[in-house]
């Protein structure tokens, strides 16, 4: 196996993810019947196209880009949540992703029960979850509340518990989607430290973020996505610089367009 020699953790080749908008969001029987009768052509769009990225163990890759660039879709494909429409995705190792904190949680269940439920969703064997239980409880730092139903938790507590579960499994590959900005400052420091620890443990990390400081400080590779295409891949400094430059250009363009339309550009677009 030639791939094994390269020692990559993730290899994405010519990846494309296509959405069929005809079947998107809350479509009804009535609408789809109307579509068939009116012979409306299928409405398709590529969330990602021609994306090729490789990542070795020990590397951490930052995925940056404006909203709607396809960053989260890329993570979803890597996590196995979404199937590629074209190209291939090769992931070597156990993947754990923080694509949303505490999403599998049930508010009626206690913290402990939610850890067991979360572990079951992740497909971990019971014994493994029981082994991990003390360290999860400790890291989440929610004290007595661990026996109380989740509905009594604050948003920060839930986020902490979610982070603790997802990172407790010691994954080979960690996927993170903008979750570092959760909880109080204290926990943010703690979670950053944990992510750095995982990166240092020669494990691969893919991080989607708007926090450019993080990118230059903790990632050794970065990729800039725009409208589903890779604009630049390389050293974090260069990619961040290009991203900031393009964002600035875009803002100016919008302001000019607004001025041309005779609008006062008080509300600066993001």
């Amino acid at each position: 196996m030639s791939n094994a020699r390269n020692g990559y953790a993730i290899s994405v080749e010519d990846l494309g993810v296509q959405y069929n908008l005809r079947f998107n969001r809350k479509i009804t029987l009535r609408q789809s019947f109307a579509n068939v009768v009116l012979r409306k052509p299928p409405d398709r769009f590529w969330a990602l196209r021609n994306v090729t990225v490789q990542l070795s163990h020990g590397e951490s890759l930052a995925v940056i880009g404006p909203n709607g660039a396809g960053k989260s879709t890329l993570l979803q494909v890597l996590a196995g949540i979404m199937r590629p429409s074209e190209g291939s995705v090769d992931v070597r190792g156990q993947v754990s992703g923080l694509l949303g904190l505490g999403v599998g949680f049930d508010v009626e269940l206690s913290g402990i029960e939610n850890i067991l439920l979360g572990g079951a969703f992740l497909g971990l064997p019971t014994r493994r979850v029981e082994e991990l239980l003390p360290s999860i409880v400790e890291f989440a730092d929610i004290g007595q509340f661990i026996e109380a139903p989740l509905k009594t938790y604050s948003a920060g507590m839930r986020a902490r518990l979610g982070f603790a579960i997802a990172t407790a499994v010691d994954p080979d590959i960690l996927l993170l989607d903008e979750v570092l900005a959760t909880g109080d400052a204290n926990f943010r420091t703690k979670s950053k430290a944990r992510v750095i620890e995982i990166v240092k443990a020669a494990k691969a990390v893919v991080l989607v973020t708007h926090d450019m400081e993080w990118v230059t400080e903790y990632c050794n590779r970065a990729v800039l996505l725009e409208k589903g295409r890779v604009i630049l891949e390389g050293a974090p400094d260069e990619v961040v610089a290009l991203h900031l430059q393009r964002t600035e250009e875009e803002t100016q363009r919008r302001q000019e367009a607004a001025r041309a339309a005779g609008l006062d550009p008080v509300l600066r677009p993001k």
């Binding site: 074209e86 995705v89 992703g97």
Partner: peptide, 15 residues
């Protein structure tokens, strides 16, 4: 959160 039960997973588009 997601986890692959098998260590290696290869996903192709061919469905």
């Amino acid at each position: 959160m997601s986890s692959g039960e098998s260590a290696v997973s290869i996903r192709h588009s061919s469905g």
